[in-house]
Design a binder for these strands. Structure first.
Lengths: 120, 120
DNA sequence: CGGAATCCACGCCGATACTG
DNA sequence: CAGTATCGGCGTGGATTCCG
C-alpha cells in the first residue's frame, strides 16, 4: 500500500467509480489523455497548477487501477509516455453525461453569481 | 459559508459536478431519495454507518446546491422530510452511466481479488 | 425526533529539496 | 527529463455531548 489504501467493499457502483476518480486532478488527466498520448512534461504543462508530486501520484494510482498505460523509454534524457487504456476510455465515456451536467451547472451558477455575492 | 467554501472557478464540467457529489455519502443519499421522500431517521437507517453529523451536513450542502428539498413540519415530535428536486433528479440521471461503470468495476475487482491479495 | 456544537484523528495535497 | 523524499497545513469525517 505504497500510495492508496483503496478500500472496499463498495455500497454501490457510484462509490466504486468515485474511488477511482476522486483526486484533485484525475478527471483532468483523463480528459487530457483522451486527446492522445502525452509525455510527463506535456501533461504537466497541460494541467496548470498541478505539483509534480500529485501528478506522479495520481498517474501511478490510475495505472494501478488499469486506466492508464505507462511506457518508459530508457534513453538519455529519459522519456515516459502516458496513454489511456481501453478501460480508461470506457470510464471517460461514462463520465460524459456528468460533464454535461457540470457544464450546465456552471452556467447556472454564473447567472446567479451577482445575486449570490450580494447576499454575502 | 457555514458549511462549505464551495470554490470555483471550475476547469471543466466534471470538476463542477464532482464538487457537488464529493462527500462520503452524497451519492448514496441521492440514490436513496430517488426512491421517494424520506424522513431524517429513515435516511439514517437506510445508510448504515453514517453519523448524524455527516448526514445533516451533507443534506444541508445538497440543499444549498439545489439538489434536495427540505420540508419541516412543526409538530411534536418534530418531523422533517427530504426529497429530490428536479435538478437533483437530473444529476442522478447523469450519474447513471458512471454507476454502471462502477458496478462493472466491482465485478472486475472481485474476480482479481485473489491474485491481488496474494501479491501483497 | 431532529438536530447543534465541540474535539480530534487521519489523509489529501502543497512546497521544497534532492536524484538517476 | 522524470521522478523520489520529507515536512507540514488544512479540510473531511468520526465520536461524543447537549438542545428545542
Amino acid at each position: 500500500m505504497t500510495a492508496t489504501p483503496r478500500t472496499g467493499p463498495y455500497i454501490c457502483g457510484i462509490d466504486a467509480a468515485m474511488d477511482v476518480i476522486s483526486g484533485k486532478w484525475k478527471a483532468l488527466i483523463l480528459w487530457e489523455l483522451d486527446n492522445g498520448t502525452r509525455r510527463f512534461g506535456e501533461l504537466r504543462r497541460g494541467l496548470p497548477g498541478v505539483s509534480e508530486k500529485m501528478l506522479v501520484q495520481h498517474l501511478r494510482e490510475m495505472e494501478e487501477d488499469g486506466l492508464v498505460h505507462r511506457e518508459v523509454y530508457r534513453e538519455v534524457p529519459p522519456r515516459v509516455e502516458y496513454s489511456l487504456t481501453e478501460y480508461g476510455r470506457s470510464l471517460n465515456e461514462a463520465l460524459g453525461p456528468l460533464g454535461d451536467w457540470g457544464r450546465e451547472r456552471i452556467a447556472r451558477i454564473g447567472a446567479d453569481r451577482i445575486d449570490t455575492d450580494a447576499l454575502r
